[in-house]
């Protein structure tokens, strides 16, 4: 199953459950509160997922390591390498 199909499957499953409860399609005579809670659920889910995404990406951008040390080490090694290679007769 491709990821696309997995997603379609998941979304339709959730959608079906949501419709069943919100519109009481099976005439289960669910309490009114169930229907009231279920009805705006998709919007809540969407908004909370959006917030979660923004927060996660924001946090990860803020904590993205800046590898100053690595850059400095590399600069040093480049010098060392150039000297050594020149000694070994490399013409750059």
């Amino acid at each position: 199953m491709t990821k696309l199909l997995e997603w379609l499957f998941g979304v339709s499953l959730v959608g079906a459950v949501w419709a069943l409860v919100s519109f009481d399609l099976l005439d289960l005579s669910l309490p009114q509160t169930y229907r009231e809670v279920a009805w705006p659920m998709p919007l809540y889910l969407l908004v909370s997922f959006g917030c979660y995404s923004l927060a996660t990406v924001g946090y990860r951008v803020a904590t993205f390591n800046d590898c100053e040390e690595a850059a400095k080490e590399l600069q040093g090694q480049i010098k060392e390498a150039k000297e050594d290679l020149r000694r070994r007769g490399l013409k750059m």
């Binding site: 990860r60 993205f64 390591n65 800046d66 590898c67 100053e68 690595a70 850059a71």
Partner: peptide, 10 residues
């Protein structure tokens, strides 16, 4: 993206 991994010059 994990642990001590990172980037320089971005």
């Amino acid at each position: 993206y994990q642990g001590s991994g990172g980037v320089y010059g971005w």
